[in-house]
Amino acid sequence: MMGALDGYVAVITGASSGVGAASARHILREGGRVVAGARRVERIRELLDGLDGWTAVEWDVRESAHAERAIATAVAEYGKIDGLIASAGIGMYGGILDHTDDELQEMLATNIAGTVWPVRSAVRAMRERGNGGDVVIISSVAGLRGRGNEAVYAATKHAQVGLGGGLDKELHREGIRVSTLCPGGIATEFAMGAGRTETSPELSVMMSADEVAAQVLWTITAPANMRTLIHSFRGLGEED
């Protein structure tokens, strides 16, 4: 039975949990091939066990050399790269003075540099092949407006929105579609121990990682002549 993504090769950051892991499963079930990267590479193998067509790579998105290695793995294993899903990210809730310098540096590096380095490596490979491709950046509604007690996190997400908008203007005439997805709350391990706990009441009205991954799938399977610039969405029960 043919899948919607037969022959499609995706590289995914942050694939050891949440939207990254869910996106990998959705793409594989539609016949695609996946290079799944994260620092917890053994966790990727556990989550994708039983599915065919994937390769797991250890990947710290803060390191540009890791991005080059992951993209090279995709080309070596599957001959090309059709899509990058930039899903890696961390968040912390709290006021501007509530975190250490090191904690904020890690969030800035993971969410901003950790998006830029994979995009650069993926675009280079797409240009060399000359057949277009998809860049999907998983940002947040926080990237569209700031909120109290997450100002630095929101700043990193605004940076992703700005990156995506600029890249769209830079790349769409080459057939490279750049989409920035801005979901609301997602019930994952995101920010656990950094302002969120497993009993946080807001989790009950948030979307699941699979629901967000379905939007990733919708984006990359859109008609070839259609590009999605910014797509924002949230669960029915979640307040603005």
Rank of each mutant, 00 (worst) to 15 (best):
L181C: 09
G91I: 08
M2N: 11
G133P: 03
S179W: 15
R145Q: 14
N131C: 03
R69L: 07
M206E: 15
I44W: 06
A191T: 11
A122G: 01
T110Q: 03
G237P: 05
V205Q: 05
A125W: 12
I220N: 02
P223N: 06
V161L: 13
P118C: 06
E202P: 00
R234M: 09
T13R: 09
S87E: 10
E174G: 00
T199Q: 09
M126I: 09
R124H: 13
I230A: 01
V123K: 03
A74R: 12
A56F: 09
D60L: 02
P118I: 12
Y8A: 00
I96W: 12
W117H: 14
Y93F: 15
P183N: 11
T13D: 10
G166Y: 12
M126D: 10
A122Y: 11
A70K: 08
R147C: 00
R43A: 13
G132M: 08
A151H: 04
M126C: 02
A187P: 01
G143N: 08
G3L: 06
G37N: 10
R129N: 01
G195Q: 12
W59N: 07
E68Y: 01
S87V: 06
G235M: 10
G32R: 07
R25E: 15
A109T: 06
G7H: 11
I85M: 06
L167D: 12
G143R: 06
A187T: 03
